[in-house]
Design a protein around this nucleic acid. Structure first.
Lengths: 194, 194
DNA sequence: ATCATTTCTTAATCTAGGTTAAGTATTTTC
DNA sequence: GAAAATACTTAACCTAGATTAAGAAATGAT
């Protein structure tokens, strides 16, 4: 499987020697998930982080009324994990599911810890990745506190132009925090006034 | 100023030699902020991270209608920064303000970068701190997507029992995402049914 | 190609939470 | 310790977004 995307991703923040790359390759497992297959499901203890080589994943929770809430989409070149479960080694409440057939590079928690010992600069790499992720979640929380549904939808369209046409509208609704019916209404209104 | 809390905080995830501690002390600046004084204000480019030795800070944004939204409270033993502005070195939209007279240890971005070079295990320390913070924001976003205002308030009370009586109720409202009037209504209803 | 399933739309009705406004504590300041 | 400022409460009314329901469009499976 072609993992050049993974190593280009590393190269964005640190530079690895050929030897380090070779060592790293041994720590990852490459796998294809069919559309609608789960990488993990709520209630399980998460054992690995995933990097998307191709396709798209989504991380979502299901609340006590059975409604889904999308915490993140992971198109190609993105990292995704149930950080809560992975760190605490307690059962998580995140489902990570393939939205289409998806190629991923997986690294187990054990191997990730080994990796930090052997190649400490990866500690920096993941610090930076996580910092960026933190900023994005802070921003999104702030948007949920301060913007209307309409504004959140417009922002989503601007931020993820490539996803808009590729993923079902109800998933976007579950991401911005409205019902599919209301998003449909918003879009109809937007189309009318354009 | 007594900075033992800071070094106990480091000790939760890494162990430092006496020499390292001594070096680190030179990188921090100790400062007292009077109640209502700002560490940073929106529009400024953030230059430092803060650790609270005593007192309490709050990080909040002001939206286009003039409403405040609290992104985080930082009581003693907490780290706080405008991560977006600090990382991007662009003007931020976070205000960090002292809620009472507050002692903080400040480290500049420059010194933090130096620190990573000189004592690489701090890279690990901050990776872990940021991982935990990420998990907390994810959880909170999920709560905002899936819980009612009443449930979010009850969860806040359970999570921050020490803050409940120390901070104004309108700040809690601005944290859980409702108006002060509505929170007051919730509390009245809760008191009635108890 | 056809049937079944899923997704999207529209519309009527409902409700959690917002707005406005006025009054009552509680702090802060001098 | 009085006046001013801020925080909290209550209540009437309002609205963004939810719910319910039913039909239309698109997708998928055989």
């Amino acid at each position: 499987m072609d993992d050049s995307l993974l190593f280009n991703n590393f190269a964005k923040h640190i530079s690895l020697t050929k030897a380090e790359e070779k060592y790293l390759k041994t720590l990852f497992e490459y796998k294809v998930f069919k559309s609608k297959e789960f990488l993990i499901q709520q209630g399980e203890i998460s054992k690995q982080s995933a990097f998307v080589l191709n396709g798209c994943l989504r991380g979502y929770t299901i609340d006590s009324n059975g409604f889904e809430h999308v915490l993140s989409f992971a198109p190609k070149d993105w990292w995704i994990a149930d950080m809560y479960s992975l760190l605490s080694q307690k059962p998580g409440n995140l489902n990570i599911e393939a939205m289409v057939d998806t190629e991923v590079a997986l690294i187990s928690k054990t191997n990730q810890d080994k990796m930090y010992e052997k190649v400490p600069k990866l500690e920096r790499f993941f610090r930076i990745i996580i910092e960026k992720s933190l900023v994005a979640y802070q921003q999104r929380l702030n948007d949920n506190l301060s913007l209307t549904a309409q504004e959140r939808y417009m922002k989503f369209c601007k931020t993820y132009p490539q996803l808009i046409n590729d993923i079902p509208q109800k998933q976007i609704a579950a991401y911005i925090g409205v019902t599919p019916e209301f998003l449909s209404k918003l879009r109809a209104k937007q189309a009318r006034t354009k």
